[in-house]
């Protein structure tokens, strides 16, 4: 039997069918982080894991047209997406099949699919945001 496809980064998301990114939450500082830090950089206390919002808004983006890294499609879009509910702005891949019509302020939501390879060159599940 084939080994299950790995996640692009261990523990970075849960439930690939109905995915949520996993961030960190400091109960003391009431701050959220993505990705989850080792300890809270503000109080050095422990940080719990917390699922983040699936919905985001594009803050900025670009379309990378040169030879892509990690077996990503050419071209592919990458962006900074605001997770409004969480108060976080995260760097993320955007949907490689939807490079047209991207704009600042566009609503996007989280997807997880087999896409490209991980740092070790193995096929992997990767998260991206796609226009709603």
């Amino acid at each position: 039997m084939d080994e299950p496809v790995r996640d692009v980064f261990p523990g970075i998301f849960e439930d690939s069918k109905n995915p949520r990114l996993i961030g960190g939450h400091c109960p003391g500082c009431k701050r959220k982080f993505f990705p989850k830090p080792i300890v809270c950089p503000y109080c050095l206390g422990p940080v719990g894991a917390t699922p983040l919002s699936r919905e985001g808004v594009i803050y900025s983006f670009s379309i990378v047209r040169i030879k892509p890294p990690f077996g990503l499609p050419q071209p592919y879009p990458v962006g900074l997406v605001d997770l409004v509910e969480d108060g976080l702005r995260i760097i993320t891949l955007l949907d490689p099949l939807k490079t047209e019509g991207l704009a600042i302020g566009k609503n996007v939501h989280l997807m997880v699919e087999p896409l490209g390879v991980d740092a070790g060159g193995q096929t992997c599940l990767r998260y991206y945001f796609t226009p709603v």
């Binding site: 980064f9 670009s62 990378v64 040169i66 990458v78």
Partner: peptide, 23 residues
């Protein structure tokens, strides 16, 4: 750096400056 999650998600240096340019 190849092990950073931002890099794995496709962030290359020209893209980060392209995003600044767009803003």
């Amino acid at each position: 750096g190849d092990t950073e999650i931002d890099t794995l998600e496709g962030l290359v240096t020209p893209a980060s400056f392209a995003m600044r340019a767009l803003c």
